[in-house]
Nucleic acid binder design. Structure first.
Length: 616
DNA sequence: GTAGGGTTAG
């Protein structure tokens, strides 16, 4: 062996599992061998050793070899070294540019990826190819940056370059992530010319699922399965998105069917699929199934723990959620901002107010998570629910917030003011919402009612007039219940079900029993029940606390309530400060376990006729 | 040689 050559190769420490055999050293002069080793390298020490050889052997000016070296560093997430090599290239080619762009994407630096693309555009010496465009659209997706994405899309169209399935998939994914579902669909439809594969179908299903178009997502999944042109079968990516669509619709039966497909396809052990199933069961009211899935996950992540914490929190099991959080921290799984939102949510929905404040104040110090407006909104909501409205207001005023997140913050305060009859707080929150052009209709209605309650009828009337002139029409709130595999919908103000009969009798009985137990919020149940014509109650109906449908239907079946009544009771119970206590009591009355589910995120469906059978 | 899709909040 050439002694001088060996001096150029850095050797690994004695205890390292260095991936070059003695035999390999005899081939180190060969460019093909170096390139081959680079593509295999999963070891920074090996890649840097190979780099030394490349330099010494005079391959530094060879684009092909240097590109391989750049790719090797990119795979090792050493983007700074990759960038340095790139910057030193006298004439980088399109692969060099694209490798660097894709490297920044893969290491969570999409902004830098876009700036490299911009530099490439200004440089003008090399034209981007399909690979470059696919990487750039991916960067735009990560940033949800539709303005830049659209201009690059236009540049691609003008270049006359034919799009392929990968470029089009990344393009439609970008539009989906930027909430432009219609353009995403147009791209998907245009793909009939370049062909579609399981990735493009998944991207479109995901675009629907992530943009509150769950029915369209499921419809497209059905079309995919019926499509005779594709030989692809649903894989773990597609199933995770379909399950997410079922969650967003709150359709337990569809979710169960999707679970069947998961089991049939052998994807139950995939942790992303399992997490989406967990979330689906929790959102569709079946906490016990969610827990079963959670216990089966062998390799837990921050997301699986966060989903389970959130599930318990939403089902009113605050202490169990906090216990799970402790377990997660003990396992050294680092919580993120969503986990802390779950923890605060747990405190908020279980009356653990001081604990919640403690978590908010120690987030940075203990978990390294800086509270953002969403965390403050959760705490404002928590303080407001438990009557500490002034503290909630004081906290809200300290939060620096944009219009969109401000709507949530001041919306939470508005609810608190309304719940506790604080006209001043309702007025303040409503004004802020109207000024920032957010939730204007809700704010007008709340403010008008607040004036009316305080006796300011003229102010109230003039506000209503102003609201009508501005064309602000209140959308009708809608709730629904799934019994077996059929869905029944009920609109606010719809009096088709017997309001004054069995529902009110049931509520009065519940109120009596709660008073006997010393609970104080019960009077608002009947107030809400009997004031369905007042706008403030219409507002309240948008913030629905729902019950586990199937069990509840069975439960209420025992006391012969019509199916629609359950929805009325749910809406009325939402007004009750001790609603979890009320649920417990109902469980005892009907001798069935009842699980609470929060359907705030769900969207009004239009088609109640779909059943499990025509889904699959 | 380089490229695309999935799960967690409100």
């Amino acid at each position: 062996m050439n002694k001088r050559f060996l001096q150029n190769v850095r050797f690994a420490p004695a205890n390292s599992s260095f991936p070059l055999s003695l035999n390999d050293f005899f081939h180190l002069k060969s460019k093909a061998f170096l390139v081959h080793k680079l593509s295999e390298s999963t070891d920074l020490f090996l890649t840097s050793s190979l780099q030394s050889s490349i330099l010494k052997l005079g391959f530094a000016s060879d684009n092909f070899t240097v590109n391989r070296l750049i790719n090797s560093y990119v795979k090792l997430r050493e983007t700074n070294t990759a960038r340095k090599l790139f910057d030193e290239m006298p004439e980088p080619n399109v692969v060099s540019w694209t490798s660097v762009i894709s490297g920044f994407n893969d290491t969570g630096q999409p902004q830098t990826a876009l700036s490299v693309f911009q530099q490439m555009h200004e440089d003008r010496s090399v034209a981007p190819n399909e690979f470059t465009y696919a990487s750039v659209f991916k960067a735009c997706s990560a940033l949800a940056e539709s303005r830049i994405g659209k201009s690059i899309h236009a540049r691609l169209e003008m270049s006359g370059r034919r799009s392929n399935v990968v470029v089009s998939s990344s393009l439609l994914d970008m539009y989906g992530k930027c909430n432009d579902v219609e353009t995403a669909r147009r791209v998907f439809d245009s793909m009939i010319w370049c062909g579609r594969n399981v990735v493009s179908w998944t991207s479109m299903i995901t675009a629907y699922a992530q943009n509150a178009r769950g029915h369209d997502a499921i419809q497209l999944f059905k079309t995919f399965n019926a499509d005779t042109l594709t030989l692809d079968r649903p894989n773990q990516f597609m199933l995770a998105s379909v399950i997410s669509a079922c969650s967003s619709l709150g359709r337990l039966q569809w979710g169960k069917v999707a679970h069947g497909v998961v089991t049939h396809g052998g994807y139950e052990t995939n942790h992303v699929v399992a997490t989406s199933l967990l979330d689906m069961y929790a959102k569709c009211g079946s906490l016990s199934c969610a827990e079963k899935i959670f216990l089966r996950i062998c390799c837990h992540s921050v997301i699986s723990y966060t989903s389970m914490i959130m599930a318990k929190a939403k089902h009113g099991l605050g202490e169990a959620a906090l216990q799970l959080f402790d377990e997660m921290v003990a396992k050294r799984i680092r919580p993120n901002y969503v986990t802390l939102l779950g923890v605060l949510h747990a405190c908020s929905h279980s009356g653990l107010v001081n604990e919640g404040l403690g978590y908010l104040n120690s987030m940075v110090e203990k978990h390294g998570v800086v509270p953002d407006p969403r965390h403050y909104t959760c705490v404002v909501d928590m303080l407001g629910r438990f009557g500490r409205v002034d503290e909630a207001y004081a906290l809200a005023k300290t939060v620096e917030v944009g219009a969109e997140q401000g709507a949530l913050l001041w919306g939470a305060l508005l609810s608190a003011g309304r719940l506790h009859g604080r006209v001043d707080i309702v007025g303040e929150a409503s004004k802020r919402l109207i000024q920032s052009n957010q939730q204007v209709t809700s704010a007008y209605v709340a403010l008008s009612n607040a004036y009316a309650v305080a006796g300011g009828w003229e102010d109230s009337e003039s506000l209503r007039l102003e609201m009508r002139r501005g064309g602000n029409v209140k959308e009708r709130a809608c709730s629904w219940i799934e019994i077996k595999d059929l869905v029944y919908a009920f609109h606010a103000g719809d009096l088709s079900c017997d309001e004054s009969g069995e529902v009110v009798r049931f509520m009065k009985d519940l109120e009596k029993r709660m008073k006997e137990r010393g609970h104080r919020g019960s009077s608002s149940m009947i107030t809400a029940s009997s004031s369905v014509f007042v706008d403030v109650d219409e507002e309240a109906k948008e913030e629905i606390v729902s019950l586990h449908c199937e069990r509840l239907a069975l439960a209420f079946g025992l006391i012969h309530l019509p199916a629609g009544s359950t929805i009325r009771i749910m809406n009325n119970l939402r007004m009750c400060r001790d609603c979890h206590e009320a649920f417990k009591l109902i469980s005892e009355i009907v001798e069935r376990e009842i699980v609470v589910r929060d359907v705030n995120r769900f969207h009004c469906f239009k088609d109640g006729s779909c059943t499990c059978r025509d889904f699959w």
